[in-house]
Write a protein that binds this DNA or RNA. Structure first.
Lengths: 267, 267
DNA sequence: GCTGGACCCTCCCCCCGTGGGAGGGTCCAC
DNA sequence: GTGGACCCTCCCACGGGGGGAGGGTCCAGC
């Protein structure tokens, strides 16, 4: 090892990093030069530091946060592999989210923001036998699917006279934890073991129909709630979804969902 | 339209935005409340503003920048669709980049950072007939492909006695514009119409072999350059790549590339 | 030995979109 | 009138740098 030290500019060019970056990595302790001149403050790097610097450059190109890179550099091979796997999973998740966004954006670009016909009408009172669940906003799809999976046996097993379609009930605000309910309409007086009975009041509602994947439901909600507010009305929780054509009956693009938002009467 | 105005908190809950966000959108002019109380500074929103607010929330979830959202809101339907298509393309591009990153990260997580055997050796002088090109760092793959497409006819048409493999020459620093060259070795004295002759000096080199997609070449360069620097040697441009097994002969995972970095002799 | 130019230093502000919090005023129902 | 929910402004933080001001340092060439 020769003691031929490199100035920050030369080292930056060798490692494909910018001078600013190297100074930043020094400040944060990620990669400190082997020598700093006490008088001038000049940073001097040893050629052996190129391995770490190149690794940093590589991992930054993978968009890993500097904090993670610091841990990966400091860790042994096994721990490092674990860190990289975790980052890989994080990236895979992001790709999944982006792909869902891309689809929504496709639809927005094609159909434009409007395209939903919102109507005001009256709904009768409905008596539903439901299952409840609590989930994170991102996990609503999974939560509903799981509820339906448990709901159908309960309805079928009791030979209850339930009436399609299935309904979903949702709050207006999507908070940390979302309380959802899934169920089906049952005749007055009927009870289903293991299911809770919820009575949805009848009255004035705004509604629209969405055709397409559930991931695009927010587009319909967007139009529906906007129309409600534009008419000076107040939406009332819970919002109701009727799954007219569900995943069991048709491909994703043909799913049909009726969105019903009760609105405050009079006023 | 009734003049029932909403406070910022209520409006935020209706539109699924945070109070902080709404204030920020007011500050930046994206969405100003219809009324601001002169005395208290309280913001009051009209129910009709929910449409815009919901649209903002929707587009933010698609990760569109606020500036773009502002343009989309202000634009007519056609222009808006154009903006959304542009954003869709941007997102698609990002997904592509992320997928490439994911692959690299997979490989890193499996194989770890090392795994390349770097050797020092001597290369003979080589006389190449080459084509030159300039491309952006991200477009190197395309640039090389295009060069090869033009190179092979030139070599074949001249019935020149060229010798596989094909070689690629690259600078050490990847700047804005990268000057590359692609060619094949030809015997002394031979000239090929339309191609430039480059003589690569013989001498001490460091080298390694990479098997896998070209997108992962940086991993090999990482190891190779790190090893060079660790030995206290100075790499010399241009870096040379020999395409031992190319895309025409094998699937991506079996591509074999020999990386050769000349190093300064003596000291 | 001097000088010019390339290089280096620190410090501050900027990007983006949002959250957190301090410190203080306002609204409304009881 | 009072308590508590609500609202205000202002400042700081994040991450990973870029841009630039203002000033010091190094070294090759003369």
């Amino acid at each position: 090892m020769r003691d031929e030290l490199l100035t920050i500019g030369r080292f930056a060019r060798l490692c494909r990093l910018s001078v600013k970056q190297l100074r930043h990595y020094d400040d944060t302790g990620l990669l400190a030069p082997v020598h700093v001149d006490a008088g001038s403050g000049y940073r001097y790097y040893a050629p052996e530091q190129a391995r770490d610097a190149l690794t940093i450059a590589l991992l930054r190109e993978m968009d890993l946060p500097l904090a993670v890179i610091a841990r990966a550099l400091a860790a042994g091979p096994e721990h490092r592999a674990r860190i990289l796997r975790a980052e890989r999973d994080r990236l895979a998740e992001r790709i999944g989210r982006d792909q869902a966004r891309l689809k929504t954006l496709e639809r927005l670009a094609e159909g434009g923001l409007p395209g939903y016909e919102v109507t005001l009408g009256r709904e009768p009172e409905r008596r539903l036998a439901v299952l409840r669940a609590t989930c994170a906003p991102a996990g609503i799809g999974a939560g509903v699917g799981e509820c339906v999976g448990r709901l159908l046996p309960a309805l079928g097993g009791a030979a209850a006279a339930w009436e399609p379609p299935l309904w979903g009930l949702y709050p207006l605000d999507l908070d940390e934890r979302v309380e959802i309910a899934v169920g089906a309409q049952v005749p007055r007086g009927e009870a289903v073991p293991g299911l809770e009975i919820v009575v949805l009041p009848g009255g004035l509602v705004a509604e629209t129909t969405h055709t397409g994947p559930y991931a695009h439901l927010r587009l319909a909600y967007n139009a529906l709630l906007a129309a409600v507010h534009e008419r000076g009305l107040r939406p009332q929780a819970p919002v109701r979804e009727a799954y007219l054509v569900g995943p069991a009956e048709a491909p994703e693009e043909e799913l049909t969902t009726r969105l019903v938002v009760p609105v405050q009467e009079g006023a």
